[in-house]
Design a protein around this nucleic acid. Structure first.
Lengths: 127, 127
DNA sequence: TTTATTATACGAAACACTTCGTAATACGAA
DNA sequence: TTCGTATTACGAAGTGTTTCGTATAATAAA
C-alpha cells in the first residue's frame, strides 16, 4: 500500500469504500454500487477512478480490456488520517471533545459503552 | 441563531471558531488571529466574512465604519452537524466505529482516555 | 483643507472537484 | 467481415472555494 499523504475527496472516499469492501473491481461494478445510492453517469465514475489512479489512491491492472482497479491506500490508515484532520479542524485537536460529542449525541447502547470502556482499559494498561 | 443547514467550508469554520471564541469581532481582529496560524491577506479574510454574511453563517453590524461580525450559527449545533456528516461519510454512520478508531490509533492522550472513561461511567450509571 | 491611513466593495483569476459529451478502440455476435 | 456494444481516453464546462488587486469611501492627522 502506498503511504502517500493524500486526502481523498468525498467522491473518492465513496469509491475507496467500495474497493475496500469488494476488493479489486471494474469501473462497471463500482458504478453499479454507486448507483444503488446516487445517480452518476458511467464516464463520471470512470474519470474519478482514472484520477484516483493518477493520484496514487488506486492502482489498476490494464492487462485486459476491462481495467481492474484496487485501493492503493489502507482503510485503517486513511480513516485514521481523516479522523485526525477532522479532530484538528473541528475540535481543536481534542479527541475527547469529539468522543463526548459523539457519545452524547447518539445515545450509544450499554453494550457499545461496555465495548468502548473495555477498549479504553486495554489501552490504559499498555501506557 | 440561525438554523440554516449550511455546512461551512474549512476556511469558514476557522473564522467561526474565532467568532465563537472571541465574540463579535472586526475583520481586522479576525485576520490577526488567523495570521497567528497562517498567512492570509486582509482582503481575503474580508471577502470570506462577506460571503459568510451572505450565506447567513455570520451577521454584521454596519453601524459604524468598521463592521462588526458575529457568528450566526451555534457552535454546538454546527459541530454536531459536521460530526454527523463525517460519521456518515467515513464510518458508515456508526458512532462507535468512529470512537474505536479515535481511541485505537493514538488519536487520544492518556488524560483524554481518563476523561472519556469517566464520561462513560457516568452515562452507564444513568441507565 | 490637504494628505495619509484604514475600511469596505467589487471583480476576476487561480484552483480543485464533479460531471458528462464525444471520440477512439477493442470485442463479440451475426 | 461487418455491425453493435462495451470500454477507455480526452477535453471541456459547471460549480464552489480561495485569493488578492484595485477602486472607492470614510476617518484621522497634519
Amino acid at each position: 500500500m502506498s503511504n502517500k499523504k493524500l486526502k481523498p475527496t468525498e467522491s473518492e472516499l465513496e469509491i475507496l469504500q467500495i474497493l475496500w469492501d469488494n476488493g479489486p473491481s471494474s469501473v462497471r461494478l463500482v458504478n453499479e454500487k454507486l448507483n444503488e445510492v446516487k445517480d452518476q453517469g458511467y464516464t463520471t465514475t470512470l474519470k474519478l477512478m482514472q484520477i484516483m489512479n493518477e493520484k496514487g489512491l488506486a492502482i489498476r491492472d490494464t492487462g485486459s480490456r476491462t481495467h481492474i482497479y484496487s485501493a492503493n491506500v489502507s482503510e485503517d490508515e486513511t480513516k485514521s488520517r481523516l479522523l485526525r484532520t477532522f479532530i484538528d479542524s473541528t475540535f481543536k485537536g481534542s479527541a475527547s471533545s469529539l468522543v463526548m460529542q459523539a457519545l452524547g449525541n447518539h445515545n450509544a447502547s450499554k453494550d457499545e459503552l461496555d465495548e468502548i470502556k473495555a477498549l479504553i482499559e486495554k489501552m490504559e494498561n499498555k501506557k
